[in-house]
Design a protein around this nucleic acid. Sequence first.
DNA 1: TCTGGGGTCCTAGGACCC
DNA 2: TCTGGGGTCCTAGGACCC
Length: 392
Amino acid sequence: MPVLCLPRRIAHLDMDAFFASVELLSYPELRDLPVVVGGAKIAPPEKLPDSRYVFARLKDYSGRGVVTTSTYEARKLGVFSGMGLMRSAQLAPEAILLPARFDAYRNISRRFKHAVAQIASTIEDRGIDEIYIDLTELAEATLPLAQRLKASVHAATGLTCSIGIAPNKLLAKIGSDLQKPDGITVLLRENVAERIWPLHVKKINGVGAKTAAHLEKLGIHSIGELAGAPVEMLTQNFGPRIGAWLSCAANGIDDSPVVTWRAPKSLSREITFERDLHVRHDQAELSAQLAALCARLAEDLEKKGYAGHTIGVKLRFADFHLATREITWPQAMFAVGDLLRAVRQCLKHKLFVDADQQRIRLLGVRCGSLVTREQANETAPKPEPQQGKLPF
DNA sequence: TCTGGGGTCCTAGGACCC
DNA sequence: TCTGGGGTCCTAGGACCC
């Protein structure tokens, strides 16, 4: 018996310029100005006796931070997420610079997700400011439903969002970006050629800078051109998996389900230093930073109730090249002391660093192969303390 | 253009076992 | 002793996302 399979109805909901919009709730006087939210280490605005604020400007900044979010006014000046703040200051010196307040964003994030959950309960969390929602089982017509979701999010947070609704996650995600901010875009199968194919390949979630550049070299710029490319040619260039996936994506095909919960795979902590640290001269500082990172990681593991078999270290050197080393242990670990001993083991036995030459820009620790604390058996061998000097 | 911090998934080679 | 082929786990690096 053939199974009749109705098309799914999937929404992608994306908060508009989320961090910056949350900040505008606190500082409404900044509305319509170019505003940039940057690293957490920036000083907050100073409050005057008359309760007005003194705001920092981008041109006053010096350091290694990047733009976390910018308002649409700042984007008009060429300032986008991920860009170095020093570079942004050249483009928009007068733009207002605010520190990121992640606790505030997480709080509002919970509120908008809760508001959506009152209307539709099948939600996939895609980070702090976006979600997928499976609306297939709901009876309500698409457009009124989308309007109701937006109204509910606005009532809960005071913020606007953009929604794309389509037969799958891939198209819903592209759709939510088509009429930003505060937009609703409904896409059907039959709209793919007209509305999706003219777009650049980078609009596909999963096609980044490298893949796009590779495609450009093959003469493929638009999603339509990708859809017309022979699958064999794509698999030759990108491998069997990615080649086939690219071809499907360009044709608007995506069967991936809306996943309501995933167990975490790894937890990590890292820090980029204000200045690059010398392996020998700054040994004490590096050692203290390593211990602090392990302490924070142990806190996270404790809070979430996990332990991990794989403990690793991450180093970015002054020349920006990256090295990672990890060891999988028979014993799952969660205590600071164990993490620290395991990380030092990686550093001493697996990574060659020239203590006289190399400078370190970033230091990170990671815990993978997670199990719950109840599953962590306590009898297997743990890492031994590392004695001797350097590195760290 | 001197480039954060937290994640996920994929690939490819080597070890090891049957 | 020299030769297989498959499966799984581990590791390092890289692409990508928010």
